[in-house]
């Protein structure tokens, strides 16, 4: 394996680890003879995934769509709130405790409220994933804005820069790495929010499928749902990492960075 580059070796190692994990799982299940009602084998899960894909697909799309909608709204609201909180002392003092308090509420408790207000279905799921993904975005954007060097601000103020100039030329670009770091957290949280709402009140989505499946003791199908969620989560996480590397390469100071 000496002819492989370190990066390739690292990749292969992680693939091996993943395969070994599932292999061990399979062997452990077979060896202990545990019922598939408790813990199905990976091969069983794969089988179910393959067989029921036509049935699962619309639900997957529904969950993905709901999550992305909630995520997008959450990020937009989060950025606006973050900019306001990060650039005004008054807004910070007033809004921050409120925000922390609100984000400390278990979202399970909020879903029934959304259902009462908007009926069951897609809307409460989008709203839940939105409110759950706002907080990390707000905190990070506000922190990023607050990290502007006072000396640089002096330089700009002496030039006659208005607050808007400073925000636009320095504050927002400086907050970008913070924003993108928060997007990775927010996208995984958004999935949690969506599935949470779907398990409580919906007739479509992976969450609903898993609720029904567990009611029928169809544990392999529950696991199939979990796998789908995990795969979607990984894909979206990877996507936001990619965008992050593209947008804020300057903050990572890689020497192989050619153009930003």
């Amino acid at each position: 394996m000496n002819h492989l580059t370190p990066v390739m070796r690292q990749r292969m190692l992680s693939v091996f680890t993943l395969m070994a994990f599932f292999l061990l799982w399979e062997i452990a299940c077979l060896a202990s003879g545990v019922s598939d009602l408790v813990l199905p084998r990976p091969s069983q899960i794969a089988r179910v995934l393959y067989d029921k894909m036509p049935l699962l697909w619309p639900h997957t799309v529904q969950t993905l769509y709901t999550t992305l909608a909630g995520f997008a709204m959450g990020v937009m609201v989060g950025i606006v709130l973050g900019v306001i909180i990060g650039s005004s002392r008054l807004a910070y003092d007033v809004a921050y405790p409120l925000l922390v308090g609100f984000s400390s509420i278990p979202k399970v408790a909020v879903v029934p409220l959304f259902v009462v207000w908007f009926g069951s279905g897609t809307v409460p799921a989008i709203l839940t994933s939105m409110v759950i993904s706002i907080f990390p975005v707000v905190v990070n954007v506000a922190t990023g804005l607050a990290s502007t060097e006072p000396e640089l601000e002096d330089v700009l103020r002496v030039l006659g820069a208005r607050k808007r100039d400073i925000l636009w030329n320095v504050g927002l670009p400086r907050a970008m790495p913070y924003l993108f770091a928060s997007l990775k957290i927010a996208i995984t949280l958004a999935f949690v929010g969506t599935v949470l709402s779907e398990t409580v009140a919906a007739n479509k989505g992976i969450g609903t499928v898993m609720m029904i499946a567990s009611g029928n003791f169809d544990v392999p199908l529950v696991f199939a749902g979990l796998v789908l969620l995990a795969v979607m989560g990984v894909l979206l996480y990877a996507l936001s990492s990619l965008v992050e590397a593209r947008m804020t390469g300057w903050a990572q100071r890689k020497t192989d960075l050619t153009m930003a």
């Binding site: 000396e151 330089v155 002496v158």
Partner: peptide
Amino acid sequence: SEAPRLRVGLAFQNPTMLPW
């Protein structure tokens, strides 16, 4: 902003270049 302001340049010990 009414009167043309005096044009001032400022440099500190820390060069504070914007990394992006």
